[in-house]
């Protein structure tokens, strides 16, 4: 990878030896992360692949997955960015506790997260019962339920990334805007947000990837029904019950699509600050 400076010009490559102490663990780390993928590729039923790809239900589950993960990411950005700003820029009592609470979905086993969501948004849940009796709205077993489950599990990834970006951003720009008479809202929309845009993009990508692979909270909270709540990870799990080859094919489709999208976005959107 050539080194690119701010003006976009390629700097002359500086030949420096990479320290072995970094190269060896880096290589092992890469192997560890990619070996399972190799396993899938080796074991894939290549001969029957064309028929399997066109099997009914595969495309439905894939489209539903992409749609739900994208919607969940939008929800996470809408609520997560303001929350990250609050955590990074406003001193308030109990801020450390709030920050710890934000990470709860990360440590919570997703299935438990799904049960917790049912206890709140379910038909007999704390809020769900009221929503059902007053407005006739129920979330379990609906596509909205899938989006809720995915957003719950994925939002911490966005918040942590954006908060990190905000803390790393030079707050002098914001102070300058304030001295020039900009209110906090104007400062946020015109100075802060453009400043941390790469961080938001990185967080959104992480968030989207996590939402796309979400299984436990989704199957527990939203259930599993083809066309409405059966996303790819759920389809993979059920295929695994009877047909390992089908499960591998479904996994490969999900991986190919997500890696293609992420690789396509990465260079365009995410420039490391």
């Amino acid at each position: 990878m050539p080194i690119v400076d701010k003006a976009g010009e390629v700097a002359p490559p500086r030949r420096q030896r990479i320290p072995l102490g970094l190269l060896v663990p880096a290589g092992l780390g890469l192997l560890f992360l990619t070996f399972p993928l190799v396993g899938l590729l080796v074991r894939a039923p290549w001969t029957t692949l064309p028929q399997r790809l066109t099997e009914p239900g595969v495309l439905t589950a894939l489209l539903l997955s992409l749609q739900c993960a994208t919607l969940a990411t939008v929800v996470c950005v809408l609520f997560g960015v303001p929350l990250a700003w609050l955590l990074a820029r406003v001193e308030f009592p109990g801020r450390r506790l709030v920050r710890a609470l934000v990470t709860v979905p990360l440590v919570l086993p997703p299935v438990v997260g799904g049960v917790a969501l049912l206890l709140v948004f379910g038909r007999r849940g704390l809020l769900g019962e009221w929503l059902d009796t007053t407005f006739g709205i129920t979330f379990p077993f609906t596509t909205t339920g899938v989006v809720i489950a995915e957003a719950f599990v994925a939002m911490p990834f966005l918040i942590i990334a954006v908060e990190g970006a905000l803390r790393g951003a030079d707050s002098r720009f914001e102070e300058a805007a304030a001295t020039l008479g900009a209110g906090r809202w104007t400062t946020f929309t015109h100075v802060t947000l453009p400043l941390v845009a790469p961080g938001v993009a990185a967080g959104a990508v992480l968030c989207w990837a996590r939402a796309l692979g979400e299984f436990g909270a989704t199957i527990t909270f939203a259930g599993n029904y083809p066309g409405t709540t059966q996303t790819m990870p759920l389809a993979v799990y059920l295929a695994l019950e009877t047909d390992l080859d089908a499960a591998i094919v479904l996994s490969l489709i999900l991986l190919t699509v997500s890696v293609a999208i992420l690789a396509g976005l990465r260079d365009r959107w995410i420039t490391s600050p």
């Binding site: 379910g122 038909r123 199957i219 527990t220 259930g223 029904y225 709540t229 059920l238 019950e241």
Partner: peptide, 20 residues
Amino acid sequence: TPVTLEQDVKAALAKVKLGE
């Protein structure tokens, strides 16, 4: 027409227990 096809019998039962 079920609302969900659960991954095992205990999961189906849990949905009943929770009143979903």
